[in-house]
């Protein structure tokens, strides 16, 4: 019945040693992505969502490093692969789409060159075949007159077109997993809609799994199948998009939903989460959200390990919303 997951992350911990002590931007994060599934990862800046993506693809900037946990891709463990092996996997098995389409393309090389190079590096095809595939890839992401524009440079394209090219680049070697880190944040609303629907279509057609990192609840709602909510490096809620967004279990998710103007139609005041996100080097004991949580009780402040086990395994909370009465 359950096919083995495409990506499986188990108890991932990333640490950065600083001179004020070791901080953990990613702490005990576990999730899975099935083939053809889009997992949205939301959270505010500093929640560790980008760091998780970088850890999976092996692009952590030193001195950040994975200290424990396991990452499996198609059943193979990939977290402690040697550099060369990881480089091969990157691009071939995992594609990456970054926030800023301008900096993720080399400004000095024609697009076609960058595309064919990637294809040649990962697939056993001839140069002519690679070029054909590059044109096909550009056509697929909706670049008009792809055959003629293959020699063009990145600056000759608009922001939206560039992001399409980046997606073409990420998908050119036909990876089984794509990590998209805020792919639409730098884009206008109408272009954002074009890009998300493109991403959705391509993944559905190819059965690619996607980890979509974003801070935009609206994008998550329209694009993702399941959503993971992160706070201060920890996973606080993980479930189907519909469930999590309509009846959030974790007080943080609920607070986040309440503070989006999207969800507060007609209200004069937006819901406010009191206080601010703690600094990573200065986390409270127990549940990291407890000092800001209106439902917090003594147990929340104690140094106990939280698991995603309340609310049918959706939330990491001692007193989730909805189970209050019980």
């Amino acid at each position: 019945m359950n096919s083995p997951p495409l990506l499986s992350v188990r108890n991932l911990v990333v640490e950065i040693p600083t001179r004020h002590g070791v901080v953990r931007p990613v702490d005990q994060v576990s999730f899975e992505i099935q083939a053809g599934e889009i997992l949205g990862v939301v959270g505010e800046s500093g929640a560790g969502k980008s760091m998780t993506g970088n850890a999976i693809i092996g692009l952590l900037d030193r001195p950040a490093r994975i200290v424990s946990g396991e990452i499996f891709l198609n059943g193979d463990r990939i977290d402690h692969l040697p550099l060369a092996a990881m480089r091969k996997r990157r691009g071939k098995d995992i594609g990456m789409v970054f926030q800023d389409p301008l900096t993720s393309l080399n400004p000095l090389l024609p697009l076609g060159h960058q595309l064919t190079e990637t294809i040649l590096a990962h697939l056993p095809v001839s140069v002519i075949e690679a070029k054909k595939r590059a044109i096909a890839a550009l056509e697929e992401v909706g670049i008009p007159a792809a055959a003629e524009r293959i020699g063009a440079y990145p600056h000759e394209f608009s922001g939206g077109m560039r992001q399409r090219v980046v997606i073409a680049l990420a998908l050119s070697a036909e990876p089984s997993l794509v990590i998209a880190d805020e792919p639409t944040t730098a884009l206008d609303v109408s272009v954002q809609a074009q890009i998300t629907s493109l991403l959705k279509r391509l993944c559905r057609e190819r059965g690619t799994g996607v980890m979509l990192v974003t801070h935009d609840m609206g994008v998550i709602s329209e694009t993702a199948d399941r959503v993971a909510v992160m706070y201060a490096g920890r996973l606080v809620e993980l479930g189907s998009v519909r469930q999590v967004l309509t009846s959030p279990c974790h007080p943080y998710t609920s607070g986040l939903m309440g503070s989006t103007p999207l969800a507060s139609k007609g209200q004069k005041r937006l819901h406010q989460i009191p206080g601010m996100m703690p600094r990573l080097g200065n986390l409270p004991t127990g549940c990291a959200f407890s000092p800001r949580c209106t439902y917090a009780q003594d147990k929340c402040h104690q140094d106990l390990e939280l698991q995603l086990d309340t609310c049918d395994g959706r939330a990491a909370c001692w007193f989730p919303i909805g189970e209050q009465e019980a």
């Binding site: 608009s158 939206g160 077109m161 206008d188 609303v189 109408s190 272009v191 954002q192 809609a193 074009q194 998300t196 629907s197 493109l198 959705k200 935009d216 609840m217 609206g218 994008v219 709602s221 329209e222 199948d225 998009v241 519909r242 967004l245 309509t246 939903m257 989006t260 999207l262 969800a263």
Partner: peptide
Amino acid sequence: QMLLEAAPKIDGFGRDLEPPQGEI
């Protein structure tokens, strides 16, 4: 109309919208 249609909706679960045409 296009702008409002394209804006992500919080309750637009899996909405498949016809993406807007063209660019600015």
